[in-house]
């Protein structure tokens, strides 16, 4: 970890310990959330998008200012059918995106940019050759770098053991999709999956998104490889790899330092169109914005309300 990042973490941790959590709403003024507003918005997300649920996480990591059973939000086994980098190539060809922050070049994208919409129906069945190349390369990398690295020789290869000796199963009622569907067929896209979680960041007073990636056989992806599924504008700047506040291990996270400012801009845009944003919809707006950072991870943030497009 870079020294400055470590220093900042230490500073942030100290501030979080000695300050009390926000109780007064500053949602419209600053784009931030109080703890109770986070719980309110989370409850609304869970009820509208039931693939999301509240969890309590590691008992030792519980935050006293959040309810025990509502420490963070998570949605598991979310498909990511192709790498963000390849989508961007097509996307730029189609006209590019709208930046909210041209003056200081933060690279945050407008929520109305449409990376999800641009990847039309064909992505299900007709992966482009670029996508295949990228996904192949990354699968090959992931095994030696994460699962053992230089100590590889020490780890016995399970294939040598032939430990299926005392398992004699020959049952015609078993459907074998892996054997049947993947006979060296290069047209099958290796689907990655993600567990996406949202925690409350007390320092920045905003939600924070965490990504845990898995390869096509549900093996853990090295967090660095997760960057391939992050929009390249953000991959090196705003997505960092840190300890998860409620789960064990290192996970990739969209750094929340600009979340408040971006949310404030989104809220201002809505208000200028005559839409009064409600605080319990915060996470829908937030996830819509996060979709510009991770355009190919298909988590659910179904919109069932007017986003302010009426003036169009």
């Amino acid at each position: 970890m870079v020294l400055t990042q470590k220093l900042h973490e230490a500073f942030k941790g100290t501030v979080e310990r000695i300050t009390s959590p926000r109780t007064v709403s500053a949602f419209k003024e600053k784009g931030v959330l109080s703890v109770s507003e986070f719980v309110l918005a989370g409850d609304n997300l869970v009820s509208k998008c039931p693939t999301w649920s509240w969890e309590s996480g590691e008992p030792s990591k519980r935050k006293p200012y959040l309810p025990v059973d509502k420490q963070f939000l998570i949605t598991r086994n979310v498909p990511c059918l192709r790498r963000a980098a390849s989508v961007e190539e097509e996307y730029e060809a189609g006209g590019g995106e709208v930046q909210l922050d041209n003056e200081d070049d933060d690279g945050w994208l407008a929520t109305h940019g449409k990376p999800k919409e641009t990847k039309s129906d064909e992505d299900d069945n007709l992966p482009s050759m670029d996508t295949l190349e990228i996904s192949k390369r990354s699968t090959i990398q992931s095994i030696p770098t994460y699962f053992g690295g230089e100590e590889e020789e020490d780890i016995p290869d399970m294939a040598e053991f032939e430990d299926s000796d005392n398992v004699l199963e020959n049952d015609p009622a078993i459907f074998q999709p892996l054997v049947a569907q993947e006979p060296d067929d290069d047209n099958i896209l290796r689907t990655r999956t993600y567990d996406v979680s949202i925690t409350y960041d007390k320092y920045y007073q905003t939600p924070r998104v965490w990504l845990t990636g898995y390869d096509e056989s549900r093996g853990l992806l090295q967090p660095e490889l997760v960057l391939e599924d992050v929009s390249q504008d953000h991959a090196r700047k705003t997505v960092t790899i840190e300890d998860h506040p409620h789960l064990p291990g290192k996970h990739a996270s969209v750094h929340p330092c600009r979340h408040g400012a971006v949310m404030k801009k989104i809220i201002d845009v809505l208000m200028s169109r005559g839409v009064e944003p409600e605080v319990d919809k915060y996470l829908f707006l937030f996830l819509k914005f996060v979709a510009s950072v991770i355009p190919t991870i298909e988590y659910d943030y179904t919109m069932d309300f007017d986003l302010g497009s009426s003036s169009n």
Partner: peptide
Amino acid sequence: AVGWEFSMGKKGSKCVNLSKA
């Protein structure tokens, strides 16, 4: 009874190394 899991199309153990974590 049957039911030992297949991984990658054949029966066998899985192994995960978490030394990095």
